[in-house]
Design a protein around this nucleic acid. Structure first.
Lengths: 112, 112
DNA sequence: TGTGCTATATCGATATCCGAGGTAGCTCCC
DNA sequence: GGGAGCTACCTCGGATATCGATATAGCACA
């Protein structure tokens, strides 16, 4: 039973964390990243191409990812991404920041 | 020691939840809401006027809040907000959605 | 030939944030 | 009197991120 999809406003900013997380476990290409995020979140996250590809380009530009094109034997070529050392650092930072966010929301909810 | 401030992108969409949460515990005016959120989150959230006031206006327009002006004996007049019944419903929904978000991020992090 | 899945990319509309700026009341103090 | 500083509201512009739509293209299958 999939989760209901989460509103796009609340999701904002989580995409880099999610992308870095799944790439951190192995080299993946874009389409596969979207699938992994969708499946592992039980459907709660379903990043569209319009947000996924710009995010990947941005992370590559920032030095978090490196990528190379590879042919596929059944379909169009794929662009495989993997984490750099800087990317691992960013992933760790993103996780820390996410935890801080969750703690802070919880603190407000429970009266500080 | 306050938490480090959380990046604005990650914060997006949490403002209505935080605002509804603090107003849910009693009538408050705008400036006081900002203070409450800032203090209760240990400084992690520090909503600026540029995001707080539009959020309040939006929630009022959506029927989640009702407001009235009251004079202050020391300073400018204040606009006090309180939750409507619809607002309580929205607060409950926001909480549910927030929990789903946290669970989903956790699911992706821990491999689905 | 055409339907459908794979795979990448970009664009425009929408939404939200922050910082800066404006208005204004009151207090304190020189 | 007059300025600094806090309270209290509001709005505007720029940056950023999301989605849906659109485009291109390879391959499979009927």
């Amino acid at each position: 039973m999939p989760f209901r999809q989460i509103g796009s406003q609340l999701v904002k900013g989580t995409t880099p964390l999610l992308v870095l997380t799944v790439i951190g476990e192995g080299e993946l290409y874009g389409y596969e990243i979207a699938q992994a995020v969708r499946e592992r979140s039980g459907g709660a996250f379903a990043p569209s191409e319009g947000s996924l590809y710009p995010t990947l380009h941005r992370l590559e530009l920032d030095g978090a990812l490196v990528a190379d094109w590879r042919a596929s034997d059944r379909g169009p070529r794929r662009r495989y991404y993997k984490l750099t050392k800087a990317g691992r650092g960013m992933l760790a930072e993103s996780r820390t920041e996410w935890s801080a966010l969750v703690r802070a929301v919880d603190a407000v909810s429970s009266g500080g």
